[in-house]
């Protein structure tokens, strides 16, 4: 059996197992890291890698502020253990702009004022990028439904839908 096993080290007095090596590609850069088994992707990004763009709004998958793309799929980073992602590719909001050019979704969010306080925004944007890749949304109703995993307490939903719609129409991914 080829398995990664950590040593619970019951003799060290703390019962704490040691960190586990993982390889993650984050925003295009391969990172070799040692992580504790209980470290979530969100805490790894925010507290160890200083990638604070991904936000912690609830830490329980109730708000979507932590949404990132793992192997191009949108997921809640707060409910993802970093150790389980060994070998995966992670894209955060910091990795969307290319060569100093905003990603079309980022630009559309600014143009449509699709945020206010900005705290849910990185999650909204990563979620929208994921939605566009999925190609399942066509109508505004479908955009609303498929963006409902991202809460916005400032209430920017009308503008978020407009921003997503603009990018969808512009790239031909929509109707």
């Amino acid at each position: 059996m080829q398995a990664t096993e950590t040593d619970p080290r019951p003799g060290n007095g703390t019962g704490e197992p040691g960190p586990i090596p993982v390889v993650l590609t984050i925003n295009g850069t391969e990172r070799r890291l040692e992580v504790e088994p209980w470290t979530t992707l969100l805490d790894l990004l925010r507290e160890r890698l200083d990638l604070t763009g991904s936000k912690k709004g609830c830490d329980h998958g109730q708000c979507g502020a932590c949404t990132v793309l793992v192997d191009d799929r949108r997921v809640n980073a707060c409910l993802t253990l970093a150790v389980m992602l060994d070998g995966a590719s992670v894209t955060t909001v910091e990795g969307l702009a290319q060569d100093g050019q905003l990603h079309p979704v980022q630009d559309a969010f600014v143009e449509h004022d699709a945020f206010q306080c900005g705290y849910c925004t990185p999650g909204q944007i990563c979620s929208a990028v994921g939605l566009l890749k999925e190609g399942r949304a066509r109508s505004d109703d479908e955009i609303r439904e498929l963006m409902s995993g991202n809460l916005c307490r400032c209430g920017a939903y009308v503008n978020i839908v407009a921003a997503v719609r603009q990018v969808m129409d512009g790239t031909g991914a929509g109707r």
């Binding site: 080829q2 398995a3 990664t4 096993e5 950590t6 019962g15 586990i20 088994p37 209980w38």
Partner: peptide
């Protein structure tokens, strides 16, 4: 979250 060990069988 409590402390736990981690194993990944294949």
């Amino acid at each position: 979250m409590n402390r736990f060990s981690y194993v990944r069988p294949d």
